[in-house]
Simulated scan of single mutants.
Amino acid sequence: MSHIASSLVDGILTLTLDRPEKLNAFTPQMNNELADAFDAASEDDDVRVIVVTGRGRAFCAGADISGGGDSFGGQSGEMFGGEGGPRAAGRFVESIFRCKKPSIAAINGPAVGVGLTMTLPMDIRLAADDAKLGFVFTRRGLAPEAAAAWFLPKLVGLPHALRWCLTGEMFGAAEALAAGLVSASHPKDELLAHACELARVIADNTAPVATAVTRALLWRGELLDDPGLLLEIDGGINAELSAGPDVAEGVSAFFEKRHAQFPGRASVDMPAVYPWWT
């Protein structure tokens, strides 16, 4: 990988957007590297949680427009898929969304355009308290991409999504926190430590299989038309899980007042119904 850096320590995979001289501006190469990293992590049982941050003073300044007016590929539309088609441009979004491992965005500085929409399919977002954020697409003659029109209203509601996207205005971490886009803000030099501390809570205390299932239930549950359908799904999942070794270990650890050592692996031990949405 040349546009992101990767480090795995004690179950926490840190992916760092690594073009500091360009404020970590997004490229098709970064798209593919992020997608590959999330796809690999999804099936790697050594990875429990993924933390994504940026090197230097920015998280991601948006698409790399150093080429001027032709930066988005002109008629070829390279930034939006080129010969691979529009969906190829959002490959990283689908990889993040489908991943079995929870992900945390540590937004350490400016996050603009795709630099912000890339965090929407991640599960938790933290921001530096001086970070500036913006869905600036209409100010560049573009529409929101990376499936932002699906994710953003679900996270903050339609009124916030409309105002931010229609005006294209930048806003600060405090406004993002008040709207629920980020769950906490911290001084920049403490941000990554807080993100890793949160990742550590997940990695040390939860069952990999149950965590992967929970993530999928929460993201996909509201797509069902009737809660009765979800009752069938989550009831069947829990019936299967309760007969397995993870629940036995979790209950034993609770009574013995110790940390559980869950044997289940998300790579091979997912419930039979998973992925139910297919």
Rank of each mutant, 00 (worst) to 15 (best):
A127N: 13
D129Y: 01
D130F: 12
D130I: 13
A131R: 09
A131C: 13
K132L: 10
K132F: 01
L133A: 11
G134K: 10
F135K: 04
F135R: 07
F135W: 06
V136Q: 07
F137M: 13
F137H: 13
F137N: 15
T138K: 11
T138Y: 08
T138R: 13
T138H: 10
R139H: 12
R139E: 12
R139K: 15
G141A: 07
G141Y: 09
G141W: 08
L142C: 07
L142H: 03
L142D: 06
A143Y: 08
P144A: 12
A146K: 01
A147Y: 13
A147P: 05
A147E: 13
A148P: 07
A148N: 09
A148R: 01
A148C: 14
A149V: 11
W150K: 03
F151Y: 05
F151R: 05
F151I: 06
F151S: 03
L152T: 03
P153S: 05
P153F: 07
K154L: 09
L155K: 14
L155G: 04
V156Q: 04
G157K: 03
G157S: 08
H160Y: 10
L162Y: 06
R163K: 14
R163S: 07
W164R: 13
W164E: 06
W164C: 02
C165T: 15
L166W: 06
L166R: 12
L166E: 15
L166I: 14
G168Q: 01
G168L: 02
M170V: 06
F171Y: 08
F171L: 03
F171V: 11
F171A: 02
G172A: 07
G172W: 06
A173C: 09
A173Q: 11
A173E: 05
A174C: 02
E175N: 02
E175L: 01
E175P: 00
A176M: 03
A176F: 03
A178E: 15
A178T: 04
A178C: 05
A179W: 03
G180A: 05
G180F: 04
G180L: 04
V182E: 02
V182M: 09
S183P: 02
S183Q: 08
S183L: 04
A184H: 15
A184D: 15
A184T: 09
S185T: 15
H186L: 14
H186P: 05
P187C: 09
D189P: 02
D189L: 09
E190C: 09
E190P: 04
E190S: 14
E190I: 06
L191G: 14
L192M: 10
L192W: 08
A193R: 09
A193P: 00
H194Y: 10
H194Q: 14
A195F: 12
A195E: 12
C196N: 15
C196V: 15
E197K: 14
E197C: 08
L198P: 11
L198Q: 11
L198A: 10
D204I: 01
D204L: 11
N205F: 04
N205C: 04
A207K: 00
A207E: 06
P208H: 01
P208R: 00
P208I: 00
P208A: 03
V209P: 00
A210R: 04
A210Y: 00
T211E: 00
T211R: 00
